[in-house]
């Protein structure tokens, strides 16, 4: 059962990812990206990370994908069918990406990972919350500062200058 679900989510994720990078119409590309995010959320559920699955859908589908669709719509000419979608180095890049995948796949299948599957914690979300205000309080605060800085920066950069 786990195998079937894994392959289902993996095929959804990878198929949609290939569509994201090859579709000519960027708006469709963004919609495929949403499917990728849903597939990854499914993978997280399979890995017993339910909280992350929900965060994935909320942040990526709810915020980032919406932002990308806004950007696609605000920058016109992007759907001009005469414009080539790839630059001149696309063939070389495709070759190197395939090479990188082969190397990575060989490495991760050859290495004997020190796997020790324990039971997933039942109160994972509670523990996650405790960790964020306990041992990881400083990174958590830094992340919130980063978000504020990014928000202010984005507003200043995108503002209309008189």
């Amino acid at each position: 059962m786990q195998h079937v679900m894994f392959f289902l989510f993996a095929i959804i994720t990878l198929g949609a990812a290939i569509m994201v990078v090859t579709t000519r119409n960027l708006l469709r590309s963004a919609l495929w990206l949403i499917l990728v995010f849903f597939g990854i959320a499914g993978i997280f559920v399979l890995l017993n990370a339910e909280f992350l699955a929900v965060v994935q859908i909320l942040v990526y589908v709810g915020a980032i994908a919406t932002l990308i669709i806004f950007a696609v719509m605000l920058t016109r000419q992007v759907m001009d069918p005469k414009q080539p979608r790839f630059n001149d180095q696309a063939r070389v890049v495709a070759g190197f990406a395939t090479l990188l995948f082969v190397v990575l796949a060989v490495i991760v299948t050859r290495v004997a990972w020190p796997v020790a599957i324990g039971a997933a914690p039942v109160d994972a979300i509670q523990q996650l919350g405790m960790d964020f205000v306990g041992p990881y309080a400083v990174p958590f605060e830094v992340a919130s500062v980063l978000l504020v800085v990014a928000m202010i920066g984005a507003i200043i950069i995108a503002r209309e200058h008189e």
Partner: peptide, 18 residues
């Protein structure tokens, strides 16, 4: 690894910044 390589291809070969 497969997802990373697809993403790398997209990031390096796409003409449109988005």
């Amino acid at each position: 690894a497969a997802l990373f390589c697809i993403g790398a291809f997209g990031a390096l070969a796409r003409k449109n910044a988005v």
